[in-house]
Amino acid sequence: MLPQIKRKPKLAVWKFASCSGCQLSLLDCEDDLLSVAGAVEIANLPEVSRTMAKGPYDISLVEGSITTPAALEHVQEVRHNSKYVVTIGACAMSGGIQALRNFKDVREFTRIVYAQPEYISTLEKSTPISDHIKVDYELAGCPVSKEQLIEVISALITGRTPEIPTSSLCLECKRRGVVCVMSAHGTPCLGPVTRAGCGALCPSYNRGCYGCYGPKERANTASLSKHWSQLGATEEQIVRVFRGCNANAAPFKKESEAHEHH
């Protein structure tokens, strides 16, 4: 339970390395946008407003992963100026798609480099926000679900704990009556190890889940990989599927590495 914020809370949105999709989810709440805007003071949302009010902020929504030296400092300022830091999306939570760089052999990577190095500065790895500062809540997804985003903001404003499921995607398929693509069609699916939240989107479109909500709690990735092998997936395919939007999330990282050197 979080303590309630008494006055109209000041909301800020911060972007690190990202596609802006998670903060865009806020604008995609077309029916609720103006009521959210009325319930909070939007103090920093540069993609929408020229007004940039100084901190401290009550709620900071943080999108994106840490990939530059400047970001290392900026994220500290965000923490310092914010009562609650809520990360939104896979980039902020696990390092996101940018963490694909984390698996590249640096020598292999530098072979395809031809930028003039003095102009550009970037870090070797893409890391989640929680590697650098204390985070009060993490919302999963690539992108986040807009319903979950509204739920988190409402919960923080009213001082309750957000109600966000932590079960696997399989439960969402069962709840929606979606036929299991893996048992019915032999289509490899990450559902059993992936956190719920999207509403079992991919299986409902006849394709396997590719894990954009990241690992569920206690994900048995080894058992799933074994099942995938039985369905005919190659070791390379298993490596690649765990190297998507949540490649750096610990269970996915471990599983992809376990299949890499066979």
């Binding site: 990202s18 596609c19 802006s20 030296p69 290392l72 760089r101 640096v106 990577f109 530098t110 395809i112 480099v113 031809y114 930028a115 190095p117 550009i120 500065s121 970037t122 870090l123 070797e124 790895k125």
Partner: peptide
């Protein structure tokens, strides 16, 4: 974000 997606890499080590 689109415009910066394609830049090749120079690595600065932490």
């Amino acid at each position: 974000s689109c415009a910066t997606h394609f830049l090749r890499l120079e690595i600065e080590r932490e």
